[in-house]
Amino acid sequence: EPKTIAHLMLGCVFSRQVWAVILKRWGKSEWIPSQDSLPADRWSTRLVPSSKWHDLSTGIILVWWTIWKHRNAIVFDGARPDVASVTHLIEAEGRLWWKAGLFKGLGLAVIFDFPTMGT
């Protein structure tokens, strides 16, 4: 199969395993995207109210960024594919992104078990 960005982020077995874990934690297992349907296209109009779209799109970027960094570690540093490590990094990085103010509402903050706003 060609190594396209869609394949890397959505289509390969590893990425689909990461998405399955993350979406299960988000309580949205049914949201697993196909390789032909990017999450941003699919989720923006059908599944997510506009008030939650910013946090969801930030969460999607977080997942993709972490998968990309892990891919680079595999290619350039000889790391082994590790779904548990990637999902842990997504949560850890998500907490840092929340502290930096990248998540605007409680959407993913609650899912990632961040402290509530104002504390």
Rank of each mutant, 00 (worst) to 15 (best):
E1T: 10
P2D: 08
K3E: 09
I5H: 07
I5N: 07
A6Q: 14
H7T: 01
M9V: 01
L10E: 04
G11D: 04
G11I: 06
C12A: 03
F14Q: 09
F14G: 07
F14L: 10
R16L: 00
R16V: 02
R16T: 05
Q17M: 13
V18W: 03
V18A: 04
V18Q: 07
V18M: 04
V18Y: 03
W19V: 03
A20N: 08
I22C: 07
K24Y: 01
K24V: 00
R25P: 00
R25Y: 00
W26I: 00
K28H: 13
K28Y: 02
E30C: 02
W31I: 01
W31H: 09
W31C: 04
W31N: 05
S34P: 00
Q35Y: 05
D36M: 10
S37G: 08
S37A: 15
S37E: 15
L38W: 12
P39M: 06
P39D: 04
A40E: 14
A40K: 11
D41I: 05
T45W: 14
T45M: 12
T45N: 13
T45L: 14
R46V: 06
L47M: 12
P49Y: 02
P49E: 10
S51W: 11
W53G: 05
H54S: 09
H54F: 03
H54I: 05
D55M: 01
D55E: 03
L56V: 15
S57N: 12
T58S: 12
G59V: 01
I60C: 03
I61Q: 13
L62F: 04
V63D: 06
W64V: 07
T66Y: 06
T66A: 11
T66Q: 15
I67D: 01
I67N: 03
W68R: 11
K69Q: 15
K69R: 15
H70G: 03
H70C: 04
H70L: 04
R71Q: 11
A73C: 11
A73Q: 13
I74N: 08
I74E: 15
V75R: 12
V75N: 08
V75D: 13
D77S: 14
V83N: 09
A84P: 00
A84K: 15
